[in-house]
């Protein structure tokens, strides 16, 4: 039961079919990576898991520790323990990072209970230190005027504060220089635990040098076409996605 399990997932947007029968199982305690060429449906999967209503799920189901994820509202999914690190985090003008995080944690409190503000700040500062984030980011509006790297760090800060059961990282490495990548990976690695599963979506093998996955899945045209150990990522890197497309398309049909 302690898995995020996706079964025969079909999804489309504006009538165009994107996911075509995707199966995937991420147990707690493991880090799974999904690699695939542009347009293979990787980010679509992330958005559907989070509850983006632009996409229509036409078939299949997703169970999080046995609970039907697809029946939950976006905010319910998050409170139930799912976290998505956005590929393009939104800016929220006028809402400070601290207030945003407080609201997210407050939403997890039982009715009528107030979040302990002192403990909250203490924890936030400790997490920010781990991510080499300046304290000034607590007062700044969420992601507003942040560099690409700062936005991604901020996503990981949220992950660390919300302590989800399952975290989906949607191309968290895109646009990061090597130093920022290392910091982000450090944050993610510090959160690895037997109580938490990770689904790391990436186009490049590079990220997986720093966040070493237990399993690698190759996604092409809306389905997982091959799964293997981390050496699969290296093979993909070497041979390229064109090879994967020719070699693997249809293989998992």
């Amino acid at each position: 039961m302690s898995t995020l399990s996706i079964h025969n997932l079909h999804a489309s947007i504006e009538g165009q079919s994107i996911l075509k029968g995707l199966d995937l199982e991420v147990p707690k305690g493991e880090v799974h990576a999904i690699m695939g060429p542009n347009g293979s449906g990787k980010s679509t999967l992330a958005k559907i898991l989070a509850g983006n209503e632009d996409y229509e799920v036409t078939e299949g189901d997703v169970l999080m520790d046995g609970e039907n994820l697809l029946e939950m509202e976006v905010d319910e999914r998050s409170r139930a323990g799912l976290f998505l690190a956005f590929q393009y985090p939104n800016e929220i003008p006028g809402v400070s990072n601290a207030n945003f995080l407080r609201a997210a944690l407050q939403a997890r409190q039982p009715d009528g209970a107030e979040l302990d503000a002192v403990a909250f700040y203490k924890q936030m500062y400790a997490r920010m230190d781990e991510l080499d984030m300046d304290r000034k980011f607590t007062a700044r509006a969420v992601n507003e005027g942040f560099s690409g790297g700062e936005k991604k760090r901020n996503e990981i800060l949220q992950l660390m504060m919300l302590e989800p059961k399952y975290a989906v990282l949607d191309e968290t490495d895109s646009g990061l220089d090597i130093d920022a990548l290392k910091v982000v990976a450090r944050g993610v690695n510090s959160m690895r635990s037997p109580e938490r599963g990770f689904l790391v979506i990436t186009h490049y093998q590079r990220l997986l040098e720093y966040i070493v996955p237990d399993k690698v899945h190759v996604m092409i045209d809306g389905r997982i076409r091959r799964s293997g150990g981390r050496e699969l990522a290296l093979e993909l890197e070497e041979k390229g996605y064109d090879w994967a497309r020719e070699e693997l398309a249809g293989a998992g049909a």
Partner: peptide, 13 residues
Amino acid sequence: DTLLYLKARGIHD
């Protein structure tokens, strides 16, 4: 999209 981002952090609508 902004609304979705907040809700994706568990914040009620």
